[in-house]
Design a protein around this nucleic acid. Sequence first.
DNA 1: CGCCTACTTGAGCGGCATCAATGGGTGTGG
DNA 2: CCACACCCATTGATGCCGCTCAAGTAGGCG
Lengths: 257, 257
Amino acid sequence: MNNSGQHSQQFTSLRQSCAACGLSELCLPVSLDEVDTRKLDAIVERHKPLRGGEHIYRADDWFRAVYAVRSGSVKTYTLTDRGEEQITGFHFPGELVGLDAINSWVHPCSAVALETTSVCVLPYVQLESLAADIPGLQRKLMQLMSREIFSDQEMLFSMARRSAEERLAMLLLNFSGRFQRRGLSATRFRLPMARTELGNYIGLAPETMSRLFRRFSEQGCLKAEGRELQLLDLDRLADLAGRECPACAPEDRRGGN
Amino acid sequence: MNNSGQHSQQFTSLRQSCAACGLSELCLPVSLDEVDTRKLDAIVERHKPLRGGEHIYRADDWFRAVYAVRSGSVKTYTLTDRGEEQITGFHFPGELVGLDAINSWVHPCSAVALETTSVCVLPYVQLESLAADIPGLQRKLMQLMSREIFSDQEMLFSMARRSAEERLAMLLLNFSGRFQRRGLSATRFRLPMARTELGNYIGLAPETMSRLFRRFSEQGCLKAEGRELQLLDLDRLADLAGRECPACAPEDRRGGN
DNA sequence: CGCCTACTTGAGCGGCATCAATGGGTGTGG
DNA sequence: CCACACCCATTGATGCCGCTCAAGTAGGCG
């Protein structure tokens, strides 16, 4: 539809190598030797950064490559049959986007930058043949996909039965852990997305999100100023996320009996 | 527990080859030539069938292999921190189980046979090196994992906002499609699991499941006799699954207004 | 300055979990 | 063969959580 000009700017000197990338521990090249890393380097395309709101690909686009987030953040989403946006994931530096298209060769969801974001483009056909050459790369790819399956399932069964409070606590802890893996603070970070979007992702109405943030603040385990978050009590959040369901509070179960 | 004798039958001639397996279209060997299929055959272990209730592996077990369901059906589940079972998936012939363990080398959930079930054991280390030899196999593996990611995400965002009615309709259609892919009837099948388990999977109480089945029957789109199901109106079910949310029924929205 | 979107706060209601009790199906033991 | 236990399915009553609606505030941007 829209999408600004994207005036051709292929001249950017983006030949930063995988070897020099600070995310190599999180991304693909882990455990590759110098030669293999160079081979990988040779197929990676790096373009100029995307601005917030620009799409990496759209649902139903032909699948050509997977994308490694290098900086910034990415949101993936589909449109429901009712035309509403349904967010399927948030992706931070060191994480891959587009793996769900390998099976059908068509992207089942759209991916859009939430802020200024740069990604490494990994053309899939070449990545595949490279993986056949380099056992370590093949293994790493499989591991990444396996982890994606696992974390999706974890989210899945988290959503199924858990209360709104539990869902939000889990999401905050999930973010906390992912920021920490990147060497950032586990307790203090800035959300790149609106609260509405967080709510969309975990299946809660914006109003509920607002009330939850206030409740968490009142309980002293959270401080929020706009998108700037500070987790004040990780233990308490873990309690909120895990234990403490209506059915297992030791005292106070319903009026009678 | 129960189940007839199944006297130790190690002598069974279980060397049925992948080439002869009717599921080859669904499982791994698709598009492999005769030589490659034989190589795959060589690493596949086939044991005697499991009886209902027997485990393939348990959560926290060391990861050694992935498993292809050949006949019967499998349920995967974890225990929540509250000690309750949370079902993470149902798996039918031609589908792989255990892919979520590749990343950590430990099974994050348990897998148990729902009925008499036979599986092909695919030792992962050997599968991995075989995949490096056979590009077609590598691609197929990646596709399978990609599909798993996609369908998990689909389930995920299906659960997030949808009503109980929509969830059940989606699940029934999902099963219908999977039975059809195996060449079985899309409208008539026998569920291998209890309704309680279905409800557990989609996050609904058993009582709600019961009421939903009755409602669907009254609407004439379903006939259920115990675990024997007959989908009478797939179109109507699709409507229930997709459109028809509380917010978009054209008439009859709330009392007032 | 006006518009739009995000966020907040309050009021009301409905969907679905929960509790409770019953009935059927099946395996088990007398 | 029947009695019993156990699990699963059903049905009704009750109440809470979180969605919906409505209104107001605040912040970003042309």
